[in-house]
Design a protein around this nucleic acid. Structure first.
Lengths: 159, 159
DNA sequence: TTCGCTGCAAAGCTTTTGCAGTGGT
DNA sequence: ACCACTGCAAAAGCTTTGCAGCGAA
């Protein structure tokens, strides 16, 4: 897997030691699109049960700081991580009922935000745009059919 | 305070009981721009120490569901709440070093996102756009001067 | 050989919840 | 008079951390 090699290289360049545990965390991470810390813990421990929970969390923090992972807070629950290293930037559209996440690109936004950032004299480092709504399928359901966790009777919110 | 009256009205219309505790939570909430749940707990208990932590959390959830509060996950730590009821939508530009938060409006984004949402057949309910970067002051510092976990002191910023 | 990294487990921080009693409508 | 709401405190959920030993460079 090409991306994996690159990540290891990049870690090495930054003086971050490549232990077998970190290798495993990286390998498992890049094999998912979105995952929570706990999901990755489970996944990693399925491959090697001796890896400690704390090690995975520490590796995640490192990868995040290194810019390899992005951390997303979606609607509820713990934050999701996403491997962005080597991928073009994209934004998210999420269904608040079923939790479906659509990734899309919108170059015109990128241009607009350059303007905004310039306006305030900022140097842009990263950004996230999230749209929350109802997917075509869920729009057809009555509010009562809404699952417990994906929050709230969203009908009320007039966009 | 006008906004407070409106909020109480709105709660009433939704059949949500107006207890003294909720009144207090609303009053304190609208007097801040951004706050965490724990900050609000402290603030409320300063006025009335008998109010339970759980009550504040439950009230926050209600107000959030009612669309009166928005929940923001900024760079680290617990999420911040923000009173958006009666305010025009705005987005956030945050300095990753000093934690300054600038609020701004960009109507052209709103139009673009309508397009995107239509493209996927979604019904838009809400959205957040966050830009992370370095403010003019912090850009002048060397990377080494950057604090590990930038303190999140929120400047009161006007759009 | 050095010192960054790990496993373990305990603690920490934030939020949620069960229950019995209280109070809004 | 209902039953939603509250206080209390315990538990739950997620993440961090201290420490002693280990292992990558």
């Amino acid at each position: 897997m090409k991306r994996f090699v690159l990540v290891e290289q990049l870690l090495k360049e930054r003086g971050i030691r490549l232990t077998s545990q970190r290798s495993l965390v990286v390998r498992r991470a890049v094999s998912h699109l979105h995952f929570t810390a706990e999901e990755l813990v489970e996944d990693v421990r399925r491959m090697d049960p001796t890896v400690a929970r704390g090690t995975v969390y520490r590796a995640l923090a490192l990868l995040h700081e290194a810019g390899i992972l992005e951390k997303h807070d979606f609607w509820y629950g713990p934050p999701y991580y996403e491997v962005t290293f080597g991928k073009a930037h994209h934004d998210h559209l999420m269904c608040m009922q079923c939790g479906e996440i659509i990734e899309f690109q919108e170059p015109r936004w990128e241009r607009l935000q350059d303007e905004v950032v310039k306006r305030y004299g900022y140097q842009l480092l990263s950004h996230t745009h999230k749209l929350y709504g109802l997917c075509p399928a869920c729009r057809r359901l009555t509010p009562k059919q809404a699952p417990k966790h994906p929050p709230l009777h969203v009908e009320e919110v007039v966009a």
